[in-house]
């Protein structure tokens, strides 16, 4: 009789564990179905519920990753990184660690926290195998692109034989304006930089003002009206001359951002490869 009870107790324990496992598995499937349906806010609730009740921690890593991915899908990068970091902490084995790590890197790239992403890539490169290395270097290329370091990005992608991305970076490098060159043009001929960047009217008007006040200033000095010359030169000519090259610089930067955004638009909509 005593033995019977013992067996019964063991069976009871086994059965409850199996029962509990069933419950958690079901909860996981439910949460995951919400995740797959794109109901990220509710998916997070259900993954949190799963983690709260599953004291064995079987679903901890996966749940944290899924919560991170949900936040990422909702554009909440800080929260995503936080949960990926928790997942990294509860990861079992190198594979899981690498998966969580790359997700952190990808999210950091997206939120343009380039230095943090690059630091992390360097950390992971130390222990990575060849496949992992290539993937990490690929993300390094993306980190460079998102930081507008197109030269470095082009170099990185060409080393990895990623032709499409290499060409995209080179294209940006070809198209983009050198801010200093444009500014320099306007130093020499007022309005030239503006015209070069396609702002014809602004360039011509700058040229006009500079010619007018330059002429007035010079004329005043030639006629020995030194006070007038200093006043006009200082308050008007210099003012418009400075505005002229400030505008040249501003337009060059604006144009560059347009060029970068064209490239980012391509990456966002047309590029078919792996994206952050």
């Amino acid at each position: 009789m005593k033995r019977t009870i013992e067996i019964l107790l063991i069976l009871l324990a086994l059965a409850t564990t199996a029962f509990a496992q069933g419950i958690f598995e079901r909860q996981f499937r439910y949460a995951d179905s919400l995740f797959k349906a794109g109901k990220y806010f509710d998916a997070i609730t259900e993954f949190k519920r799963l983690m709260f009740f599953d004291s064995s921690g079987v679903y901890k890593f996966t749940s944290e990753m899924k919560i991170g991915l949900s936040y990422k899908a909702g554009g909440k990068e800080n929260e995503a990184v936080k949960y990926f970091s928790l997942a990294l902490k509860s990861a079992n084995g190198e594979g899981e660690k690498f998966y969580a790590g790359t997700q952190i890197i990808r999210t950091l790239i997206l939120s343009r926290k380039t230095d943090e992403a690059l630091n992390l890539i360097t950390q992971f490169l130390k222990t990575a195998d060849d496949n992992q290395k290539n993937l990490l270097l690929y993300w390094r290329g993306w980190a460079f692109m998102f930081a507008n370091r197109w030269q470095q990005a082009a170099k990185q992608f060409s080393e990895l034989n990623e032709n499409e991305l290499t060409n995209l970076c080179k294209d940006v490098l070809n198209k983009k304006y050198s801010v200093n060159f444009v500014k320099g043009m306007s130093y020499i001929i007022p309005g030239a930089g503006q015209i070069y960047t396609g702002h014809y009217l602004s360039g011509l008007m700058s040229l006009g003002w500079n010619v007018l006040w330059g002429y007035t200033t010079v004329k005043a000095f030639l006629a020995n009206r030194v006070f007038d010359g200093i006043m006009v030169g200082n308050l008007l000519w210099f003012r418009f001359y400075r505005g002229n090259f400030q505008n040249a610089e501003k337009f060059a930067r604006q144009k560059n951002i347009e060029i970068y955004n064209d490239a980012f638009g391509y990456l966002e909509n047309k590029f078919k490869g792996l994206k952050p």
């Binding site: 990220y40 936040y71 909702g74 554009g75 909440k76 800080n78 936080k82 998102f146 970068y260």
Partner: peptide, 25 residues
């Protein structure tokens, strides 16, 4: 070290939906 004081859960004080990623500056 990088994320010591992320304000917990405030991001969830309004119900949010998925947003398509935006790469543009």
């Amino acid at each position: 070290l990088l994320f010591p004081a992320l304000i917990l859960a405030q991001a969830d004080w309004t119900r949010w939906k998925a947003v398509p990623p935006s790469y543009k500056i």
